[in-house]
């Protein structure tokens, strides 16, 4: 059992602009995940579509939906259908590529986003599993590759290797999550410059818990 659906509102909801929850609302969620992991507004985004996404993105409004997510619009926002234009006006160059091969993450509704701003480059491989719910199966951040199980929420906590308190910070976060937001997987990846702690949570984050995390762990990413 994948267990992607943690809330009754994943099933009765989201409220959205039609026509497809996996190709439209799910695509908004993928764009939003990209923006969240990038930790700000990118200047350039290349979206690679695979399988069903490559075949049907035009008819389903997937392009503007991903643009809407990158712009941080909710799925039922009136601006969703004109998000490509609005993104352009905001200085974000978004391109779409239909890939012929199979999804690199093994799902028919796959989009791989390359986000950059000249300094930072981030890659997010996500799939839309139905009803507006998504999985993020691969992330490339600070030249490190992270492979979460997929279902959200996912927490990423990057700490510089030069930070003397990196061990303590990781332990503190792990202990805090154990108490307040239990996880089923916890992975640490590291290169010369960065160490990233990754957690796959069991339930959706409570609003108060998220606020605490964002306030106490600078640079933390909650998808």
């Amino acid at each position: 059992m994948a267990g992607n659906y943690r809330s009754v509102f994943d099933i009765i909801g989201p409220i959205m602009i039609g026509p497809s929850s996996s190709h439209t609302a799910g695509a908004v969620a993928i764009g939003k995940a990209g923006r969240t992991i990038f930790n700000g507004q990118p200047k350039r985004v290349v979206v690679h579509y695979y399988e069903s996404f490559a075949q049907t993105h035009q008819g389903h409004g997937t392009d503007y939906a991903i643009a809407a997510g990158i712009m941080n619009f909710p799925a039922d926002d009136d601006r969703v259908p004109i998000a490509r234009q609005l993104a352009k006006e905001a200085g974000i160059d978004i391109r779409f590529v239909e890939e012929a091969g199979p999804s690199p993450i093994g799902h028919p509704n796959t989009a791989v986003l390359n986000l950059s701003d000249g300094q930072q480059q981030v890659e997010v491989a996500a799939c839309s599993v139905g009803g507006g719910v998504i999985e993020v199966r691969q992330i490339k951040l600070y030249d490190l590759t992270i492979k979460p199980t997929g279902p959200l929420p996912i927490i990423l906590y990057p700490v510089k290797t030069t930070d003397e308190r990196r061990e303590i910070k990781g332990l503190q976060l792990t202990e805090f999550l154990r108490m307040h937001a239990p996880f089923k997987q916890n992975v640490v990846v590291e290169n010369q410059a960065w160490r990233i702690f990754e957690f796959d949570l069991i339930n959706y984050l409570h609003a108060g818990t998220k606020k605490h995390l964002l306030g106490n762990y600078p640079g933390i990413i909650c998808i």
Binding site: P19, S20, S21
Partner: peptide, 21 residues
């Protein structure tokens, strides 16, 4: 029909099946 016309609907569980419930 509202969904196909890109109107606002509640996905139950999906947009394509939003009329059944």
């Amino acid at each position: 029909e509202v969904n196909a016309a890109m109107g606002v609907i509640c996905a139950t569980p999906t947009a394509g099946s939003s009329g059944t419930l």
